[in-house]
Design a protein around this nucleic acid. Sequence first.
DNA 1: TCACTCATGTAATTGGTTACATGATTAG
DNA 2: CTAATCATGTAACCAATTACATGAGTGA
Lengths: 187, 187
Amino acid sequence: MPAGSVNFRHFILGLVSLEPRSGYDIKRLLESLSWLVGNPSFGSLYPTLHALLEEGLTSVEVIPQRDKPSRKVYSITDLGRRVLKEWMAQPVETGPSLKSFVMRLSLASNFSIEKLLAHLQERRAQVEAHRKTLELSINGSNSKQDLKESLVLEYGLVLANAELEWLDSTLNQLSQQQQILEVVESN
Amino acid sequence: MPAGSVNFRHFILGLVSLEPRSGYDIKRLLESLSWLVGNPSFGSLYPTLHALLEEGLTSVEVIPQRDKPSRKVYSITDLGRRVLKEWMAQPVETGPSLKSFVMRLSLASNFSIEKLLAHLQERRAQVEAHRKTLELSINGSNSKQDLKESLVLEYGLVLANAELEWLDSTLNQLSQQQQILEVVESN
DNA sequence: TCACTCATGTAATTGGTTACATGATTAG
DNA sequence: CTAATCATGTAACCAATTACATGAGTGA
């Protein structure tokens, strides 16, 4: 069920862009991040790798190994880089999905500090909006749902607040760093 | 992309079990919770409603309205209740999915306090495990991924800790309530 | 007049999943 | 001798999406 789901295609392209990897490499990497971004099965991983290759966004190098199946290591092409850039530029869909945000975050951190700031700020705005609606429905006078006054909203609020706190402190740190860089550059 | 996705079927059945609702009702309800549980489109909502009906898990009452399309209000059947109960009993899939947990949480809060406690404890164990692996990879000496030492892990850790805190305090409160109830009953 | 809410639905497509197949090597 | 790891892949299936169709009433 693709609910609230996110292009693994682009994320995988991004991972390949960081350094050349095989499908198996990617799987292993994603395993450790599975809670945050999810962990696509081989059944979808390999086909997307094939698709990316066919569309010219990546290239392969087949590396034979003694006594093991040969690895297929994918690298990003110029075209791939262009497509990836485009994807990174467009806004993250609003909604429940931590995933899409985290995907971008993990890639953006390898890009410029400005882009990173932009992503975090975008997220901040979304979470802030989310927090407001939660608060409204908690104190809200449209009192007719059982669900509403339940734990769920409180739970959501706690997570939202924690996220906002982290976003703020991270934004602070980063913009300080940025200012330092600017000063250094201007000398 | 159906990554980490979850049976909306059962959740919808659960919503109908709380009180009879139409497809439109459900949509409106889910809208306010979209951040936490997601908000299925009509294109999937109506068909699942049809399927539930066909399988005898729900029944309909068609309520004609003057000057508006008639509403189809679904109620749960005995069979439906049995199936729902079964679903609630089986463990929540591990993984990234807030969604599946929140779905259950919002339904469980209408059930017994024991069940609620069980759900929260299950979640606690999962999040705790998640937190540990995150901490390991943060201090971890398997230092070769750029991603690893990036913001993502820290972000995940912050969210996990916030969730754990909330889970603990909620578990405390609830088990206190439970003890009080027990005392009352034994008198 | 235009857009939105109410209220239902279908068809085409997408992007995942599970289960399967292959096959050698290593660790308990 | 069994199970796990490395490493690739395909086929059948599933649950969601988007885009479309219909149609009256309300409010700017």
